[in-house]
Simulated assay, not measured.
Amino acid sequence: MDQRISFVTLAVTDLEASRRFYLDGLGWTEDLYVEGDVCMIQVGERLVFSLWQREHFEAEVGVVAAGPGVAPLTLAHNVATPAEVDAVLALARRAGAETVGEPQEREWGGYTGYFADPDGFRWEVATNPGEIGQKVLP
């Protein structure tokens, strides 16, 4: 198996609300949309971000676990500077995102902040001065 990920899929409770958040709010462009089912957005050379209506997701993948807390994963959007972190977080807030703490300098040398999308999925917006951080910048 090649060392790569092709799709990141989120099971969402309201596809239209999530679609508005990512397309209208964050300014992303969809590549495929099936009304009431799925929205797919190419986010990298060989990487697609997929928003799948929860009921359709569960029919194929299985019942989504529910309970208190947040999903045990984060999505990250890395940028080159702290000012860009602040700008992306401000854009997400204008789009309706919930702010999850204010951005701050981290002990490992980066600067990060978090927001939650309409389903509560946590997005980290970060600048990472290390070698691995440089690998993910365009």
Rank of each mutant, 00 (worst) to 15 (best):
D2M: 05
D119L: 02
V38L: 13
D31A: 12
V34G: 07
F49H: 03
V48M: 09
A66Y: 12
V88G: 03
E107I: 07
G25Q: 04
I132V: 11
E105W: 04
T99H: 06
R122H: 15
G101S: 07
Q3V: 14
W52R: 05
T112A: 14
V48R: 10
A65F: 10
G67T: 07
L73A: 15
G120Q: 11
I5L: 13
G101I: 05
G25E: 04
E16I: 02
L75H: 01
G120T: 13
V79A: 02
P72C: 02
R20N: 13
A95M: 02
Q134N: 06
A65N: 12
L137M: 04
Q53K: 11
G69V: 01
E35P: 12
T74I: 12
G69A: 01
L91Q: 15
Y33Q: 15
L51T: 02
V8A: 07
L137C: 03
V61E: 05
T29S: 12
R93I: 08
Q104C: 12
G27F: 05
D31M: 05
Y22Q: 13
E30M: 06
T127F: 00
L32S: 13
I41K: 00
V63D: 15
D2H: 09
L89I: 09
A95T: 07
P103K: 06
F49T: 02
G120V: 09
F121E: 04
E102M: 09
D37T: 11
M40Y: 09
V125H: 08
D31C: 08
G25T: 05
H56F: 11
E98I: 08
H77K: 06
